[in-house]
Simulated scan of single mutants.
Amino acid sequence: MNIAILGTGAGARQHAARLGALGHRVVVGTRDPEATLARTEPDMMGTEPFAVFHRAHPELTLATFAQAAAAGELVINGIDGANAVAALTALPTDALAGKTLIDYAVPYVYQQPGDAEHSWPTPWGEMPRLNPVDTDSLAEQIQRALPETKVVKTFVTQEQETVVNPAEFGGGDHTMFLAGDHQDAKAAAGELLTAYGWSDIIDVGPLAAARGLEMYAHFHTALGLALNGRFGVKIVR
């Protein structure tokens, strides 16, 4: 399958490498391919320049967001939550029409030090707040902005390196969740998760349930800090 991944961050790279290894044709989208390849410094999260990753995975194609979206039969959104809606709606109207868009972005709003009303300090700085919350979600905002696209929220309750390799915890016996308003799109997302190695996948319902999946990010961070590392989550029922 031709799969487009929009974004070049650490999470997007996990998906690109794994999907390539599974035999898919992967196109990675970025705002400016030349600028992306020209960077020589790590990004704000300490991730090595994309050019280093690309040299290790020459089978991947790097293109603009529009070119990648047009080439993909299925599209994965790895654009950061603060910029996702603007970047996706800037694409040509037919680039995503009728396609499944898997969104795993967290709607983080990063603040300047001291700006938080009630600070939550972490080893990497103040924990960003979430916006939207409660009565809306980033996934729903994307769906409203792209009514002809079938948006599915998934991957968001784990670090992406665990999403693409669930077997590293409990032999893969932990739980992934998905939400969306289109059954065929959720089925496509489920097939991808199964290919990654997930055996326990819970459909939590319509896209409105993405509110809970996105807001879980803060609890996941709290657990990660308490456990001092990554982990898997199993729903026992």
Rank of each mutant, 00 (worst) to 15 (best):
M1A: 15
N2D: 15
I3Y: 02
A4N: 02
L6C: 08
T8M: 05
G11D: 01
A16H: 00
A17N: 07
G20L: 12
G23W: 04
G23F: 07
H24N: 05
H24Y: 09
R25N: 14
V27E: 01
G29N: 02
T30D: 08
E34V: 10
T36G: 01
R39Y: 05
T40F: 08
E41Y: 05
E48P: 00
P49Y: 01
F50E: 01
V52F: 08
A56W: 04
P58M: 06
P58Y: 03
L62E: 02
T64W: 03
A68L: 10
A68I: 11
A70D: 13
E73A: 15
V75I: 11
I76V: 11
I76L: 15
I79P: 00
I79H: 01
A82P: 00
A82I: 13
A84Y: 06
A97Q: 09
G98S: 09
G98H: 01
T100P: 07
A105D: 01
P107G: 05
P107K: 03
Q111E: 15
Q112N: 15
Q112H: 13
G114F: 08
A116Q: 11
A116L: 13
H118K: 10
S119Y: 06
W120T: 14
P128M: 05
R129Q: 12
P132S: 10
P132H: 08
P132T: 08
P132N: 05
V133R: 11
D134M: 11
D136Y: 07
A139G: 08
E140M: 14
R144T: 06
R144D: 11
L146F: 03
P147Q: 02
T149D: 04
V151T: 05
E159C: 14
E159D: 15
E161W: 13
V163K: 00
V163P: 03
F169R: 10
G170Q: 12
G170Y: 07
G171F: 09
G172V: 05
T175W: 04
L178E: 00
A179M: 11
D181I: 12
D184G: 01
K186N: 08
A187N: 09
A187P: 02
E191T: 12
E191L: 13
L192R: 11
L192D: 06
G197A: 08
D200G: 06
V204F: 04
L207Q: 01
R211Q: 08
G212E: 04
L213C: 04
A217P: 02
A217H: 12
H218W: 13
F219D: 09
H220E: 13
H220G: 15
L223H: 06
L225H: 07
A226V: 13
L227M: 10
L227Q: 10
G232K: 03
K234V: 09
R237E: 14
